[in-house]
C-alpha cells in the first residue's frame, strides 16, 4: 500500500502522507487557509467554518471545511474562489462582531477581507472554538473542561462550575485560547468596539513558519507575512 496520496489544491498537485486533512496539507505547503478552531495534533471540530474550501467532484463543487476533510487520492480542492472568499468574509464578520476584543479574531477578520461590520458589536469573551476543551481532554486526559448548553447559551465550563481535582492548573487552556491577547490598541470597552483592521500579522499561536512556501495568491489577500 502506498504511504502517500496526492491532492490538487488551487491547481498545485501536492503529495502528503495518508490520513492528513486537506487543511494540514495546505498549511504544510504554505497555502494559508484561514482557520481558528484548528489545533495541530488534536481532533478537528469544523466549528469555526473559516477553513472552508470547494471540493470539486463529478463536475460539482461542495463547500466543506478542509480541517474535517481527509485528503484522498485525486481530490481537487479550490481554496480561494470568489464564492469562498465572500462566504469566509461573512463568517469572519460574524465572529468579529461577537468578540472583537481579541487580536486573533481581529486578525482573522482582516485576513478574510472584512471591511465593515454590519451588526451591533457585542463584547463576548469566548468564541467557542473548543481549543481549550480539546487540549484538556486529548493532551492531558483531565476532562476538566467541557461545552455546556446549547445554541447561544453554549459556554465552556467546569462541571458544576467548580474547578475539579483533575485540573492540575497546567494552563494549557489559557495558552491555546485565542481571546487571551487583546488588540494592540488596548482592550475595547463595551460600547466602544470597532473593527481594528490595522494589524496584518498572522495569528500569534500559529507561529510555525513552513519551510516550503509556494507564495500563493492566497497570501496576497491576507497580507501573509511571507509575502513581504
Amino acid at each position: 500500500m502506498l504511504k502517500y496520496t496526492h491532492v490538487t489544491i488551487d491547481g498545485a498537485t501536492l503529495r502528503t502522507p495518508k490520513g492528513q486533512s486537506v487543511l494540514d496539507v495546505a498549511l504544510e505547503y504554505g497555502i494559508c487557509i484561514p482557520h481558528l478552531c484548528h489545533l495541530p495534533n488534536h481532533t478537528d471540530m469544523g466549528a469555526c467554518r473559516l477553513c472552508i474550501v470547494e471540493h470539486v467532484k463529478n463536475g460539482r463543487s461542495t463547500v466543506t471545511t478542509s480541517c474535517t476533510l481527509e485528503a484522498k487520492e485525486g481530490m481537487v480542492i479550490r481554496s480561494n474562489t470568489d464564492r469562498i472568499r465572500a462566504l469566509r468574509m461573512n463568517i469572519a464578520e460574524l465572529l468579529v462582531a461577537e468578540a472583537p476584543n481579541s487580536k486573533a479574531v481581529q486578525d482573522v477578520a482582516v485576513r478574510c477581507g472584512v471591511k465593515q461590520v454590519r451588526y451591533p458589536f457585542r463584547n463576548k469573551d469566548c468564541v467557542l472554538c473548543g481549543r481549550c476543551v480539546r487540549v484538556c481532554r486529548e493532551l492531558w486526559g483531565a476532562n476538566a473542561l467541557g461545552f455546556i448548553g446549547r445554541g447561544m447559551k453554549r459556554r465552556v465550563d467546569f462541571p458544576f462550575g467548580v474547578r475539579p481535582d483533575s485540573c492540575k492548573v497546567c494552563n494549557s487552556c489559557i495558552d491555546v485560547c485565542p481571546m487571551t491577547i487583546t488588540p494592540c490598541a488596548g482592550p475595547m470597552l463595551p460600547g466602544r468596539e470597532y473593527l481594528c483592521g490595522q494589524c496584518e500579522s498572522q495569528l500569534s499561536m500559529n507561529a510555525t513558519v513552513p519551510d516550503t512556501c509556494v507564495l500563493c495568491d492566497l497570501g496576497k489577500g491576507f497580507q501573509c507575512a511571507r509575502q513581504r
Binding site: 476532562n143 476538566a144 473542561l145 461545552f147 455546556i148 448548553g149 462541571p159
Partner: peptide, 12 residues
Amino acid sequence: VPLTEAWGVANF
C-alpha cells in the same frame, strides 16, 4: 463517564 460528560448531557 467523566463528570464533564454527564454535566454536558444534563445541560444539553
